[in-house]
Simulated scan of single mutants.
Amino acid sequence: MLDRTMRAALSGPLDAAAAALDRPGITPDRLTVAGLVLALASAGAAAAQWWVVAAVLWLLSRVADGLDGTLARRRRAEGDGGESEAGGFLDIAADFIAYGAGVFGVAWGATAAFGIPWWPFLLVLLTYYVNGTAFLAFSSIAERTGRRLDDGRSLSFLGRIAEGTETIIVHALWLLLPFWAGWIALAWALFVGVSAVQRVVVGYRLLR
């Protein structure tokens, strides 16, 4: 829901940062891997109940995740697009791992620290699973049938009310307010569940 607005707002700073990072030793794929490592470190810190550290690492990981695509587009514009397809695959795989690990890490830490039950976090993972299935299936079939939705990203992104921006905010929120993590997870699962239904319905209609 907020991705298009945030991408427009952050395009200038991200472009400037990508220009500063545009050096031979820095590639979009390496930024993707760095973002994934930071996200996994954030999940580990959450499991250890180092909440502020986990939040900082999470936000840094998402900055790296934003910079990899920006740097890739910059290099494609300069005629260097060798990593674009493989990089797009690596990026979406890293995102799914980062989101899943983030849920697991906060669930582990919040359960141990505050006695919060696991099931709200399991609901979040279930809705992530349904969203991911609808998103990837639509992108694959849309590509094969010539109905690709091109917004500059590697895959046809079927946007709904729960997108990347909302996910970043919620993951940061339950790291900053871990004693409310169960309630945040429950509300987020409902929100993502509605988004999953929307993606299934809209994806089906677009491909008919």
Score class of each variant (00 low, 15 high):
97 I>S: 03
125 L>W: 12
63 V>H: 05
75 R>T: 11
144 R>I: 06
69 G>D: 05
135 F>A: 15
42 S>M: 09
44 G>T: 11
129 Y>H: 15
167 T>V: 11
25 G>E: 06
140 S>C: 08
88 G>Q: 04
98 A>P: 05
73 R>Q: 06
113 A>V: 08
91 D>W: 00
47 A>L: 08
139 S>G: 14
95 D>F: 00
120 P>N: 14
84 S>Y: 05
114 F>T: 12
24 P>G: 08
95 D>R: 01
85 E>G: 10
134 A>N: 14
42 S>L: 09
94 A>F: 05
88 G>R: 03
64 A>S: 12
84 S>I: 10
49 Q>T: 15
76 R>G: 04
126 L>Q: 09
137 A>W: 03
149 L>C: 04
118 W>A: 15
40 L>H: 02
59 L>T: 11
62 R>S: 08
43 A>W: 06
157 F>A: 03
32 T>E: 00
110 A>R: 02
73 R>D: 00
79 G>N: 08
119 W>L: 14
119 W>D: 13
156 S>I: 00
115 G>P: 11
115 G>Q: 12
136 L>R: 02
160 R>P: 01
125 L>D: 13
89 F>N: 08
113 A>T: 08
73 R>T: 00
26 I>H: 02
156 S>D: 04
158 L>H: 02
121 F>T: 10
169 I>E: 03
166 E>S: 06
41 A>E: 07
41 A>T: 10
104 F>Q: 10
163 E>T: 04
133 T>E: 12
136 L>H: 08
49 Q>D: 13
160 R>Y: 04
168 I>N: 03
159 G>D: 08
34 A>L: 13
111 T>I: 02
77 A>H: 06
25 G>W: 09
102 G>F: 01
53 V>M: 14
107 A>S: 14
111 T>R: 13
80 D>L: 12
95 D>A: 04
85 E>M: 10
71 L>V: 07
58 W>F: 14
102 G>T: 05
51 W>E: 13
29 D>S: 10
66 G>K: 03
23 R>E: 05
165 T>D: 02
80 D>Y: 03
23 R>L: 14
101 A>R: 01
25 G>P: 07
111 T>N: 15
55 A>V: 12
137 A>K: 11
164 G>W: 00
61 S>L: 09
155 L>E: 05
119 W>I: 11
37 V>P: 04
64 A>F: 10
